[in-house]
Amino acid sequence: MTRIFPTALRTASLLVLLPLSLLAEQKPAASGRSGKPARAVTEKINVFDLIRNGEIYYHLNPKAELHDKPEDVFLLKDKELTITGRGYGCLYTADSFKDYRLVVEFKWTGRTWGDRADRARDNGILLHCHGPEGALGGTWVASIEAQIIEGGMGDMLVLNSGLPDAGIQQTKASVEVETDRDGEKRWKPGAPRQEILNGRINWEKRHEDWDDKVGIRFADDLEAPIGEWNKLEVIARGSTLVYLFNGKKVNEAFDVHPGEGPIGIQTEAAEMVVRRYELLPLDQTKP
C-alpha cells in the first residue's frame, strides 16, 4: 500500500526508540519504564514534549494485520501528532502519573484501514497501565480505557490480562450502572454501584442500536463531524475517574485500582490527529 506521509514529515525524535533490550524486559508498568514512583501532576506536562525528549515507549503487536513500525504510525510534527492507525498498540509515557486532569483534543481525518476499513473509527486512552505490555491479545496492557470510538465516546473499559501470576495487580473499579435493553452495562448517575473487574461500561446515552460501522451516529452523540475537533478530558483524583467529552460528563468510576500508572494513546486502524495532549494539575481551573 502506498505510504501516507513522506519521510520529511517525521519528527526525528520519534525515530529513536528505546533500546530493544529494554522493551524485551517487559517490566511491570505500574511504576513506569523510568522506574520512578508515580508522581502527582503539579504543573502542566505537555506529552508532546515527552515524545520529543524520548520519555516514551511503544508496544505494537507484530502479528496484527497492520503492523507498520512505530515511527511510521506515530508522527509528531510541529504542534500535531498524527496517528496513522496502521498498527494495533500504544505509545506510552515512560513515567507513571496520578492525580491529574488529562486533556486530549483530536479529530478523525476519515482514513480507516484493513479489516476495520468499514468499521467504526476506534482509538482510546489507556490509564493507570500496569503489568506486561501485550498481555491482552498480544496488543494491550492491563489498564482502564477512556474509549474514543464513533458512537461510544467516553465508554469506560476495565482491562485485565488474566495472566496466572499472583504478583500482577487486579484492575477494578466501582461504577454506578444500569442494564440497558441489550443487557449491557451503562453509566447511570445515582444507580447502585457495581464492582467491575473486566468489560465495558457504556457512556450515559450510548444508543442500544449501536453497530460497529464506520460513520455510525445517533441523535444524542456528542462528537463533532469528521475533520472537526473534539475534546476528551479525564480527571484522575485519588481512586476516582471522571470522563468528560466535549464538555459533558459521560462516565465516572470509584474505588479504582490501581490509581496510578503510565498513560497510553492507542492506534487501532483509524487515522486520528491530536493537537493537544496535556496533563494538568487538578486545581488548575483554566482550560
Results as ranks from 00 to 15, higher is better:
142 A>M: 08
50 L>W: 15
182 D>L: 08
69 K>F: 09
168 I>P: 05
44 K>L: 10
271 E>Q: 15
260 E>K: 15
54 G>Q: 08
224 A>H: 11
108 W>T: 01
41 V>A: 09
160 N>V: 05
217 R>S: 10
238 G>C: 08
42 T>L: 10
215 G>T: 13
20 L>Y: 15
57 Y>M: 03
72 D>C: 04
94 A>K: 03
45 I>P: 01
248 K>R: 15
41 V>T: 06
247 G>I: 08
149 I>Q: 09
130 H>K: 03
15 L>C: 15
266 Q>Y: 10
88 Y>K: 15
214 V>I: 12
93 T>D: 01
165 D>C: 06
62 P>Q: 02
121 R>M: 14
225 P>T: 07
10 R>Q: 13
81 L>Y: 01
150 E>L: 00
48 F>T: 13
17 L>E: 13
183 G>T: 00
265 I>A: 03
52 R>G: 01
80 E>G: 01
87 G>V: 00
243 Y>G: 03
26 Q>Y: 14
93 T>A: 00
72 D>Y: 04
172 K>Q: 15
93 T>Y: 00
35 G>T: 09
275 R>Q: 12
106 F>I: 01
33 R>S: 06
87 G>A: 14
43 E>N: 12
44 K>Q: 14
31 S>N: 08
132 P>L: 10
274 V>T: 05
27 K>N: 14
181 R>L: 11
246 N>P: 08
269 A>F: 12
112 T>S: 12
252 E>A: 13
81 L>F: 00
166 A>T: 12
66 L>E: 01
171 T>K: 02
79 K>N: 14
128 H>T: 06
132 P>N: 09
101 R>D: 08
241 L>R: 14
159 L>F: 05
265 I>M: 10
149 I>E: 10
90 C>E: 15
26 Q>T: 11
5 F>W: 12
102 L>P: 02
216 I>Y: 15
262 P>F: 07
121 R>K: 05
20 L>C: 11
37 P>N: 08
26 Q>P: 04
22 L>C: 07
207 H>E: 10
113 W>S: 00
260 E>Y: 10
91 L>C: 02
9 L>M: 14
150 E>K: 00
238 G>A: 15
235 I>C: 10
43 E>A: 08
12 A>V: 13
159 L>H: 04
161 S>L: 06
188 K>A: 12
193 R>C: 02
258 P>Q: 05
48 F>S: 11
184 E>S: 12
213 K>T: 15
256 V>S: 02
107 K>M: 03
188 K>E: 06
37 P>L: 12
112 T>Y: 04
19 P>A: 08
40 A>H: 07
182 D>H: 08
46 N>M: 07
204 E>H: 11
184 E>P: 07
142 A>R: 02
57 Y>I: 05
283 D>P: 05
203 W>G: 05
130 H>D: 04
282 L>A: 12
244 L>E: 11
201 I>Y: 04
241 L>K: 11
184 E>N: 13
22 L>M: 11
53 N>T: 13
138 G>K: 05
107 K>I: 01
180 D>E: 13
263 I>V: 14
9 L>N: 07
217 R>K: 09
